[in-house]
Design a protein around this nucleic acid. Structure first.
Length: 424
RNA sequence: GUGGCUGUGGCGCAGUGGUAGCGCAUCUGAUUGUGGUUCAGAUGGUCGCGGGUUCGAACCCCGUCAGCCACCCCA
């Protein structure tokens, strides 16, 4: 026996027994994306580390602590390659958009992606180091429309509903323009200053690094202080407020229920204006099924044109699956299981197996033989609708015995007859 | 990254100092070529890994790895 290996921390095998749920999730999602006219894009699973730092924000925890860097064998052992596994999808999609000069080809591009993401966090329920997200990005000079904000949010909500989820809530907020955001950040610092001593240690750090995060602190003291600030949208420009009002009107028109939450902020720097979050309380601490928002300046920040805006969201697929619980979808059953009653019948049974498959009938058999009883047990466990029994008699008569596993009835037939019966 | 809890046959668990059991699953059998129920029997574990204490450890101690829950962070 050699050394045995186990999964790297925070990763998971998706076994055949899990696949049904995954495929259900993916195919429903693709259906929704297609209905909303979003096209699939596939980007590499790794990029230049700098891309993530510039997009998500140098100070964000994801960039500071959770990036999994690649190390080149050619370089010194200590030297990293400047490449990193992607912690999210947006940066790559925007990079690709810019690199391919898509803004010169069309005024609005609607993309979706599905794939693995990587973050070096300590694993817990709903949080893995390799996890999967599916998301949408609408990018282009024409993307600055409150209708598009509503469309993107509605797509996320309807997709989750379509999967059968019910217990989730949508929260929305606006951060305003880049200028508004800066003004708010300043105001927040001033308002919090008198309370600084009473804030939790984490929030003291947040005060310096990213004040907004204090707003969704889980500490009781912090919550009380934040509540007392009586936050509102008074720092917003009229344009930003009007835009936000439009988004809400459009959501209502689409029948999308939402909660407004002035203290909803996102951890990544690139968000401006509309932000939203979809939570499901059944999930525990990691309760965000998905989140997204508008990013007004990201494209320019990454070297694209100034007039190109974007909006998008990402959904955590493992979390959706957790929230769905046991997905009850019938597995596609095996059509037939072939049984050889004795060694002499095996080669003819093998021939029959092949004929069945050639006729597009799913079929399997147990090559190791064994008693008729044990083979029948295996056939039963396989879930096959029919058993095709081959013994001396069938070999002699060039026939097969076809047994219906539900009714238990069986009859000896020519192979062609059996095939048409299975297909009917 | 921090704290708490956990780690025993494939799975779920019991066993808290004298070298391991239970349920499910698996396999075999219950008259000659036949399943799902039932009955009888059988296989399977150096008790996550590495040290230590002890005459003796699954059980106590230390370390380590992994999982879970919370913090943190975020999808």
């Amino acid at each position: 026996m050699g050394k045995s290996f186990s999964l790297p921390r925070g990763t998971a095998d998706i076994l055949p027994s899990d696949i049904t749920a995954w495929r259900y999730l993916e195919s429903s999602a693709r259906q929704f994306f297609s209905v909303y006219n979003y096209k699939e894009i596939r980007t590499p699973n790794f990029e230049e580390t700098e891309l993530f730092a510039r997009s998500m924000g140098q100070s964000s925890d994801v960039v500071q602590k959770q990036i999994l860097s690649l190390r080149s064998q050619k370089a010194d052992a200590a030297e990293d390659s400047g490449l990193a596994l992607r912690p999210e999808g947006t940066a790559s999609v925007v990079r690709s958009y810019i690199q391919n000069n898509v803004d010169r080809k069309e005024s609005l591009s609607k993309y979706f992606y599905i794939g693995p993401m990587f973050r070096g966090e300590r694993p817990q329920k709903g949080r893995l180091r390799q996890f999967h997200q599916m998301g949408v990005e609408a990018i282009g000079p024409d993307s600055a429309s409150p209708y598009l904000d509503a469309e993107v949010i509605a797509l996320a909500v309807n997709l989750l509903k379509g999967l059968g989820l019910k217990g989730f809530t949508l929260k929305i907020n606006t951060l305003g323009s880049k200028e508004d955001k800066e003004a708010f950040s300043k105001k927040l610092r001033e308002d919090l200053k008198p309370h600084l001593a009473k804030l939790s240690d984490e929030s003291k750090q947040r005060y310096e690094r990213n004040v907004f995060r204090i707003l969704d602190s889980k500490s009781k003291e912090d919550k009380a202080i934040v509540k007392n600030l009586k936050l509102d949208h008074s720092y917003l420009s009229k344009e930003s407020l009007d835009y936000y009002t439009k988004v809400k009107e459009n959501l209502t028109a689409l029948g999308v229920a939402f909660e407004e939450s002035v203290d909803l902020v996102r951890g990544l720097d690139y968000y401006t204006h509309t932000v939203f979050e979809i939570c499901d309380s059944s999930l525990g601490a990691q309760d965000a099924l998905g989140a997204g928002g508008r990013y007004g300046t990201l494209v320019a920040q990454l070297g694209g044109s100034d007039n190109v805006e974007a909006i998008g969201f990402a959904l955590g697929m493992e979390r959706i699956l957790l929230a769905l619980g046991k997905v009850d979808i019938k597995q596609s059953a095996l059509d037939t299981f072939v049984i050889a009653m004795d060694d002499a019948a095996v080669s003819y049974a093998f021939h029959v197996l092949n004929k069945l498959r050639a006729s597009n009938i799913s079929a399997d058999m147990h090559f190791k033989g064994g008693s008729a009883k044990s083979q029948m047990r295996i056939a039963n466990k396989s879930g096959a609708r029919f058993t095709v029994i081959i013994g001396a008699q069938e070999v002699q008569n060039k026939t097969v015995t076809l047994k219906d596993m539900d009714s238990g009835e069986q009859e000896e037939l020519a192979l062609q007859e059996a095939i048409s019966k299975i297909k009917s």
